[in-house]
Design a protein around this nucleic acid. Sequence first.
DNA 1: GCTCAGAGTTGAACATGTTCAACTCTGAGC
DNA 2: GCTCAGAGTTGAACATGTTCAACTCTGAGC
Lengths: 239, 239
Amino acid sequence: MSDPASGPDDSDASARPASKGERTRQRIIDTALDMFAERGYDKTTMRAIAAEAGVSVGNAYYYFKSKEHLIQGFYEQATIRHAELTPTMLEGKETLAERIEAALLAWLDIAGPYHAFAGQFFRNAADPSSPLSPFSEDSGESRDRDIALYQEVLEGSKTKVPKDMADILPEMLWLHQMVVVLYWVYDASPGQEKSRELARRTAPLAARVVALSRLKILRPLVKQGEELVRDFLITRKPE
Amino acid sequence: MSDPASGPDDSDASARPASKGERTRQRIIDTALDMFAERGYDKTTMRAIAAEAGVSVGNAYYYFKSKEHLIQGFYEQATIRHAELTPTMLEGKETLAERIEAALLAWLDIAGPYHAFAGQFFRNAADPSSPLSPFSEDSGESRDRDIALYQEVLEGSKTKVPKDMADILPEMLWLHQMVVVLYWVYDASPGQEKSRELARRTAPLAARVVALSRLKILRPLVKQGEELVRDFLITRKPE
DNA sequence: GCTCAGAGTTGAACATGTTCAACTCTGAGC
DNA sequence: GCTCAGAGTTGAACATGTTCAACTCTGAGC
């Protein structure tokens, strides 16, 4: 049962001299992502990846349960870099709109090189039965990292947030990002410029919605929306 | 170039004695959907479908470019039945909230039996490079049918709709449906009861948003949201 | 009724993801 | 330094989606 292929050693980038296994694993995923970016997911066979990485096909399967699981490496790597890159871009930005925009653009910067195989990537994201979906248990770590980032986006801003919404706002902003990412996946414009435009135009809107949420007339609406998110979204990951 | 496998004869259910080809095609898709619903998408091999339908594997590929294209048959069939079923369910319903809810629940009723392989279905929906995505050219007919349905939902209601929003509202309600469908795909609750609850709770919210959109304070927000949808969503399908 | 272009059909061959029994290497424990 | 459990690795065998050259059938046009 013990799910051998989920990765013999999944641990963080601690010290540890990186066992032989860890190095092999890293070599396989690096090779795979390079090849995906270069010639696309479908065009890259497991045999080719194995050959290029200097291992046998079977060995690749020792570390990654399936070809699709290699994609999770992309998601993981992307959120890690997103978490690294965003704080720098947030510096000096004080309005919520600017900060949201910065976080979104940072993501687009990072994901850019992989746009070519993004479709294939999202194929998995949309399949709940596979453990690769951003909503799945397996992706929990990556997703949480990204949600935490939006908490930072919020906390550093001057915008006052209604107390009872503070908890779920990061989740909602993360959802907003998911929408942008979804658009990006479909974006055929050169350099995915339209996605960047979407981020730029959508960020102040999101910020304004947050600000307006304090209005009396909107109170019941906001309240219900909040409950909705709480009941239907957060429930999903029991701790 | 002429894309032979997209279906030698795609025409509507007109009279016409149904050529041999049409019948074969129908037999294949019927068999496939049955088997998908029964044992799942992955577990159903093309060989099995062909055998069960009484044709050769190659013949199945004559009618459907790939296994995934069989899934488009599902989407098509679902929207056709949705368009048939909803009007009955709308009868006597006058408030916008009730009507939206009815349309959503109708969809859930229809899709219910296929929930088991919905994940696999959405895998395609999320891949823009494949022509199966609901946003793609190929799915245009099905999607438009569904959007038209929401126009009916709106028109039959008593709620007054701001003139400048009338055009895009059906699209927005369709997007709303997409969100519910997306949730449904991930829904692991027995009988997908949570999705129905989501539809029920979300319908009045959507209706209220439509109603509130006339408020002066919200005017700029609504205006921008509308432009956003127009610029980023409707652009997609040039005519 | 005959002809023939093209629709319809076949199944073996191919491409590629995945599994598995067998082997080799590593490093903790003595 | 020896031992051995278990990590790491192999490649042939397998499963299944897809292609394609060859064949057969159909029905419009004469």
